[in-house]
Amino acid sequence: AVSDRLIGRKSVVMEAISPQNSGLVKVDGETWRATSGTVLDVGEEVSVKAIEGVKLVVEKLE
């Protein structure tokens, strides 16, 4: 599936994300709604860990 190619990809937070609120990330020039178990600020680099419905699950790059 097209979405499977996103797992493991680097992306950049475009709208802040917290455990309570989804935000936005940009992956390969496309904007996606995303969630995370931690707070992520605009501009942080993250990695796509999973896809749940139409949202990406991301975490901060170490």
Rank of each mutant, 00 (worst) to 15 (best):
A1W: 11
A1C: 14
A1M: 12
A1V: 11
A1Y: 12
V2A: 13
V2M: 14
V2R: 09
V2C: 14
S3A: 13
S3P: 14
S3V: 11
S3G: 11
S3L: 14
S3E: 10
S3W: 13
D4S: 12
D4I: 11
D4C: 15
D4W: 10
D4K: 12
R5K: 10
R5P: 07
R5G: 09
R5I: 08
L6I: 06
L6W: 06
L6V: 05
L6A: 02
L6C: 07
I7R: 04
I7Q: 03
I7N: 04
G8A: 02
G8I: 04
G8D: 06
G8N: 06
G8W: 00
G8R: 01
R9K: 13
R9H: 09
R9G: 07
K10A: 08
K10E: 09
S11F: 08
S11I: 07
S11A: 15
S11H: 03
V12D: 04
V13A: 02
V13P: 00
V13S: 00
V13G: 01
V13D: 02
V13K: 00
V13Q: 01
V13E: 02
M14K: 05
M14N: 03
E15M: 12
A16Q: 11
A16E: 07
A16R: 14
I17Q: 01
I17F: 02
S18E: 04
S18H: 07
S18K: 06
S18M: 06
S18R: 07
P19I: 05
P19C: 07
P19S: 06
P19N: 04
P19Y: 04
P19D: 04
Q20I: 09
Q20F: 12
N21P: 02
S22Y: 10
S22Q: 09
G23R: 00
L24S: 10
V25T: 02
V25H: 00
V25K: 00
V25N: 01
V25A: 03
V25P: 01
K26Q: 12
K26R: 12
K26H: 09
V27K: 01
V27R: 00
V27F: 06
D28V: 04
D28C: 15
D28R: 05
D28E: 08
G29P: 01
G29D: 08
G29T: 05
E30T: 09
E30K: 11
E30S: 08
T31L: 15
T31H: 08
T31D: 07
T31I: 15
T31S: 07
W32Y: 15
W32M: 05
W32F: 14
W32A: 01
R33V: 15
R33L: 14
R33C: 14
R33H: 11
A34M: 00
A34S: 03
A34C: 03
A34T: 03
T35D: 07
T35C: 12
S36Q: 01
S36K: 00
S36Y: 02
G37M: 13
G37R: 12
G37F: 13
T38G: 09
L40I: 11
L40M: 08
D41T: 10
V42T: 05
V42M: 05
V42Y: 04
V42I: 10
G43E: 03
G43V: 00
G43T: 01
G43C: 08
E44D: 10
E44Y: 04
E45S: 08
E45H: 10
E45V: 15
E45P: 06
E45M: 12
V46R: 03
V46T: 04
V46E: 02
V46S: 02
S47P: 02
V48S: 01
V48Y: 00
V48W: 01
K49Y: 08
K49E: 06
K49V: 15
K49C: 12
K49F: 07
A50F: 07
A50P: 01
A50S: 10
A50W: 07
A50R: 10
I51A: 05
I51M: 07
I51S: 03
I51R: 07
E52V: 13
E52P: 01
G53L: 03
G53S: 04
V54L: 14
V54Q: 14
V57A: 05
V57W: 09
V57Q: 05
V57N: 05
V57K: 05
V58S: 01
V58R: 00
E59F: 07
E59W: 06
E59T: 08
K60D: 02
K60W: 04
L61C: 11
L61K: 07
L61M: 10
L61A: 09
L61W: 14
E62G: 12
E62D: 12
